[in-house]
Structures are given as structure tokens and as C-alpha cells.
């Protein structure tokens, strides 16, 4: 992506379509990146429900937590829009405020993801043998196996890593590569933020630099919405195709 920030020189020339070269480049790149995520999501769906052993999505997902992190990422898209609007209006101060907000929100999302990965890897099962409620299939299995007479509860370490099963493999690689995209975006926006302190570095005339970063950022957000729906929501709600 960084090569896209090459220069503004081309925009001085007239182009066939009237659009800037870099803008078209960005769209072509995003088209290509769509295929990248489409392939990853396809792999995830092909292997959905095919894991031979747990944990399954139901065992580890915490929809409230991921909903919050999704919300954070969506908000970052909004602050990105505000940053760009501020730049177009010539308010460098507003630009810095909003772009820093975007960086912070993006980093918060990454923090959530790290936390989530850590939680999954150290997933813990606690089964109340006396009064079992809402057991998942996997917990039911553990219950049947371990809750014998005289045992009142059963605790087990039951982490999910990329090596654990097909779910772990496809989940971590899909969300991890999305996280990599977010990280690149955060670095890019941070670079713009720092560059705005250089005189003439970020100006309303050179709004395209920010426009491209914004385009990328929104794309990464949209991809997350798809992942959130396909992986998380379809993964836990009954009635969705599995």
C-alpha cells in the first residue's frame, strides 16, 4: 500500500479517465484483496463443522466481547471520515485529532483481538456436576465422562490454538490475516499523523494521500463485518446454516 503514497506528480498530468492513477490503483488492489479474503472465508466455510475434536465456536466465542470490538472498529471508520472531512475543510488540527482517534480505535480493536486470541488459547471449562445447565455438546461429553458419583464439579484446560483442530486452524489464520491488515492500516495512519507535523506534509491539496488510506481502512472494516457475521454470528446462533 505504501507504494501508493508515492507521489502526487501524476495528478498534474491529465489522465484518460480524469481520475488519479493512485486512486485507480487502490481500487484495483482492493478488488484483488477481496479475492484474498474470499478464499480465506471459503476455506473457513468448507471446514465449518468438520473439526474432529473441540473446542467448537460455541465453546469459546463470546459474542458480547466481539460485538464491542466490532463496534470500536466501526467507530474508527467514522472518525476516519471525520479526519478526511477536516482535512478537506483545511483544519489540520481537526485532522490530527480524528486521525489519532482512528489510530487509537484501530489499536483498541487489535487489543481486543489479542485478548480474544489469548482467552481462546487458555480456554477453561468449568462444569457444575450437581446442577448442569446449558451444556454444549463438548461439555456434555466431559460431563458424561467425568461427573461420576461424588464429583461436584469438573475443571479442565481446553485451549484453542491453530493446531487444535480445523476450526482453530481456519479461525486463527482468517482473523489473524485480517488483524495483519488492520495493523498495516494503523501503521499507515500513524505515519500520516506524524507526517502532518512536517510543514507541507499533509495539506488539503494533497488530500489524496489521506483519501487512499481511508479507502483502505473502510475496506478492512467492511471485511470485518463479513467475518463477524460469517464466523461469529453464524458460528453460535442456532438456525444458521452450519
Amino acid at each position: 500500500m505504501a507504494e501508493a503514497t508515492a507521489s502526487n506528480h501524476e495528478s498534474e498530468h491529465q489522465t484518460t479517465t480524469g481520475l488519479n492513477h493512485r486512486k485507480i490503483l487502490m481500487w484495483v488492489f482492493l478488488g484483488s484483496d477481496c479475492m484474498f479474503f474470499a478464499t480465506l472465508i471459503a476455506t473457513y466455510l468448507v471446514y465449518k463443522g468438520k473439526s474432529l475434536s473441540g473446542p467448537m465456536p460455541l465453546d469459546v466465542f463470546s459474542i458480547p466481547v466481539t460485538t464491542v470490538s466490532t463496534f470500536v472498529l466501526l467507530m474508527s471508520s467514522m472518525s476516519m471520515v471525520l479526519a478526511y472531512a477536516a482535512l478537506r475543510k483545511g483544519s489540520l488540527k481537526g485532522y490530527r485529532t480524528w486521525i489519532l482517534s482512528t489510530v487509537i480505535l484501530g489499536s483498541t480493536f487489535l487489543g481486543f483481538q489479542t485478548f480474544e486470541f489469548y482467552e481462546f488459547a487458555n480456554h477453561h471449562v468449568h462444569i457444575d456436576c450437581i446442577n448442569p445447565v446449558d451444556l454444549t455438546d463438548y461439555e456434555q461429553g466431559l460431563f458424561d465422562k467425568n461427573c461420576k458419583d461424588g464429583v461436584d464439579h469438573y475443571d479442565a484446560q481446553h485451549g484453542l490454538t491453530p493446531k487444535t483442530n480445523l476450526f482453530g486452524t481456519t479461525f486463527f489464520v482468517l482473523t489473524g490475516l485480517h488483524g495483519t491488515h488492520v495493523t498495516i492500516g494503523v501503521i499507515w495512519l500513524m505515519s500520516l499523523f506524524l507526517y502532518s507535523f512536517k510543514k507541507g506534509g499533509v495539506t488539503p491539496e494533497r488530500h489524496l494521500d489521506t483519501d487512499l488510506a481511508a479507502l483502505y481502512w473502510h475496506f478492512v472494516d467492511v471485511v470485518w463485518i463479513v467475518i463477524f457475521a460469517v464466523v461469529y454470528l453464524f458460528g453460535v446462533f442456532e438456525g444458521f446454516p452450519s
Binding site: 476455506t43 471446514y47 468438520k50 473439526s51 474432529l52 491453530p162 493446531k163 483442530n165 480445523l166 482453530g168 486452524t169 481456519t170 486463527f172 489464520v173
Partner: peptide, 19 residues
């Protein structure tokens, strides 16, 4: 996916894990 299978032990093409 193949690289992760080879380097990090993921299961994309690992038949014993059901792949």
C-alpha cells in the same frame, strides 16, 4: 495455508485432523 501447515503445524491439509 500450506506454509502454516509446514511451519506451524496447522491442519489445513492434515488428513488425520479431518482435513
Amino acid at each position: 495455508e500450506l506454509m502454516f501447515d509446514r511451519s506451524f503445524g496447522t491442519n489445513f491439509f492434515f488428513a488425520p485432523a479431518g482435513a
